[in-house]
Write a protein that binds this DNA or RNA. Structure first.
Lengths: 139, 139
DNA sequence: GCTTGACTTGGACAAAGTCCATTGTAGGAT
DNA sequence: ATCCTACAATGGACTTTGTCCAAGTCAAGC
């Protein structure tokens, strides 16, 4: 059922009701929720869950590499459970809608050695911006 | 001297001491400062300048397209005066150092039509992450 | 050197996130 | 099955980052 939950269990995570709920919320809807949105949905299932726990749990999932943090709107971080298929994001500049996208080619390879300044480059995050069809229609 | 200042003047900006100072701070060091860092440096030259003014001024520069907003660390926004040469950023995951980089190829072209979902894609922001030589040495 | 509308100010407010002392509990040990 | 204990959760205070607004100030055209 919950792949995310399985993977976390397999890493020796102590399984608590709170962590289960957070994982289920994240894995359930494949949208990109903010921490507070995750908290709101978690409260529906487990009314006593605290905001701090949601923040902690999300942070741990990110550390474990099971969840990706994206900040598309330069405001609140959003959490993306789709960590195991590399992808990037396409964001509507007007309404903030986010889609996962899969560019052709590997952007990492586009950074020539003489532009790396001695860094060991391990990761690349790409955010495309534009106007979604919905917003274009109502413009 | 200050290209940024010249460009802003040319756009009919009302020139005040505060705006001049903000532009000079930004243009002076070609690093990527947060709004509060800009404010701190601005206060050195113009002690009465307020935080609100710095935020307003930076926001206007961004609207005019003379300055770019980057959020590399998922925390405070940083301001990049180098708006007229398209470039991306390489960030050290350990110390947060930021370098401007110029990848070969155009990442915009790497997003196939069938991955655009009807969006009008106009912009792309690329952040490379890795470890800088300095941090690698002290690891 | 007036006038006026744009700019600045400072302080209150808000949103997002962190910290910590206390309390609770999962899961191994007995 | 029960006990222990290290790890986890709680909630409330605190911090950081940013926004808003009413009142005062000033750049620039006349």
């Amino acid at each position: 059922m919950s792949d995310l939950l399985e993977r976390l269990r397999g890493r020796g995570w102590r399984m608590t009701a709170q962590r289960r709920v957070v994982a289920e919320v994240l894995d359930g809807e494949h949208v990109h929720l903010t921490a507070d949105e995750v908290h709101a949905r978690a409260v529906d299932r487990l009314p006593e869950i605290s905001r701090a726990t949601v923040y902690n749990t999300l942070g741990e999932m990110v550390s474990l590499g099971e969840v990706i943090e994206v900040s598309t709107d330069h405001r609140a971080k959003r959490y993306d459970p789709n960590a195991h298929r590399p992808h990037h994001h396409l964001v509507c500049a007007r309404c903030g809608a986010i889609r996962d996208v899969h560019p052709s080619g590997n952007p990492l390879a586009d950074l020539p050695a003489d532009e790396r300044f001695g860094f060991t480059v391990s990761d690349v995050e790409v955010t495309y911006r534009g106007i979604c069809p919905n917003c274009a229609a109502t413009a």
